[in-house]
């Protein structure tokens, strides 16, 4: 497995505060990794250290196997959406992207095409001539994403891409990120407090707490997507509990009643969400149970709180 980004024992202190306290992280090439943690956990510092904005006091950072970030080696290969950066207010959107593209070594037709693609992706094609200061907050975020994706970098670090966006802008941004995942090819690291978005977009997740990685695993392992089914019913009255327990015997399975339905957890070899569904649903339908919602795995939020413990 090749790594697009690797951090080992990284320490970053601000005075007495240890924003990163010996943090380790492995981001496999081609994956989408979600960074989850409370405010001040160290997510932004992690991204800033990876992008060379901050110099760590200790530890190693390896970006795309070329060592710590260095613009001479990494220009155009790493894209970053910084959390609170604003573009120069008077420059036009298209002109700024041309400037950034030229700095990362793009020229002529390839520069023009990269700018056009980035603008299109960020739904800003009609704003090419608009001064950055005239963009709304949401548009400025989309501009930030456009510059991060300029020239198809191999690794893209997105710090809170949905922060502070109104619902319409949030939907647009989510769509943009979904498109990015669908198109594939890039390694993405997304830091976000919007955990449902992380669940939707990422295939791996890292919990960060007090400057350390608490857990990093595939999302389906973290949430139990392959081993937990939670079913919400209109009523649990008349459920065939005996039949259900026979079909899913302990200790391989735990079957429990919840406030709105039932929860089935597999402890053996992961059977997979589809297999559990295929075996459980016929029993429920035969008992005329009225199903409102089927959810595979725990919400990421719950998994995070269980792991971090506060």
């Amino acid at each position: 497995m090749t790594l697009a980004l690797q951090l080992r024992g990284v320490v970053k202190r601000y005075g007495r505060l240890r924003a990163l306290d010996g943090l380790d992280l492995d981001v496999p090439t081609g994956c989408c990794l979600g960074l989850v943690g409370a405010n001040g956990a160290g997510k932004t510092t992690l991204i800033s250290v990876s992008a060379g904005f901050l110099r760590p006091q200790a530890g190693q950072v390896n970006v795309l196997g070329l060592g710590p970030f260095d613009a001479r080696r990494h220009a155009g290969r790493v894209g970053v959406l910084p959390q609170d950066a604003r573009p120069p207010p008077h420059a036009r959107v298209g002109e700024l992207l041309h400037f950034y593209g030229a700095l990362q070594g793009l020229r002529g037709a390839s520069l023009a095409s990269a700018v056009a693609t980035a603008l299109e992706r960020a739904h800003l094609s009609d704003r090419r001539q608009t001064p950055a200061a005239a963009l709304s907050h949401g548009m400025q975020r989309r501009f930030s994403v456009a510059q991060a994706l300029l020239g198809e970098p191999e690794l893209v670090l997105l710090d809170e891409p949905l922060a502070g966006l109104d619902p319409r802008e949030a939907v647009r941004m989510r769509g943009l990120l979904v498109d990015l995942r669908r198109d594939g090819g890039m390694t993405l690291v997304i830091s976000s407090h919007q955990l449902p978005d992380i669940e939707m977009l990422c295939d791996e997740v890292a919990f960060v707490d007090r400057g350390r990685r608490v857990r990093q695993d595939a999302l389906r392992n973290v949430t139990g997507r392959d081993s937990i089914l939670e079913i919400t019913l209109e009523s649990t009255a008349g459920l065939p509990w005996e039949d259900l327990r026979r079909a899913f015997p302990a200790p391989d399975y735990t079957l429990s009643e919840t406030a709105g339905g039932l929860r089935l957890e597999s402890h053996g070899a992961a059977a997979g969400e589809a297999d559990l569904n295929a075996r459980l649903l016929p029993l429920l339908l035969a008992a005329n149970a009225r199903i409102r919602e089927i959810r595979a795995g725990d919400p990421l939020e719950q998994a995070y709180l269980r792991q971090v413990g506060h």
Partner: peptide
């Protein structure tokens, strides 16, 4: 100004 606004980050990803 560029450092305060964070605009420098866009540039310094691409050049020294």
């Amino acid at each position: 100004e560029d450092l305060q606004q964070g605009a420098a980050r866009y540039v310094l990803l691409r050049t020294t």
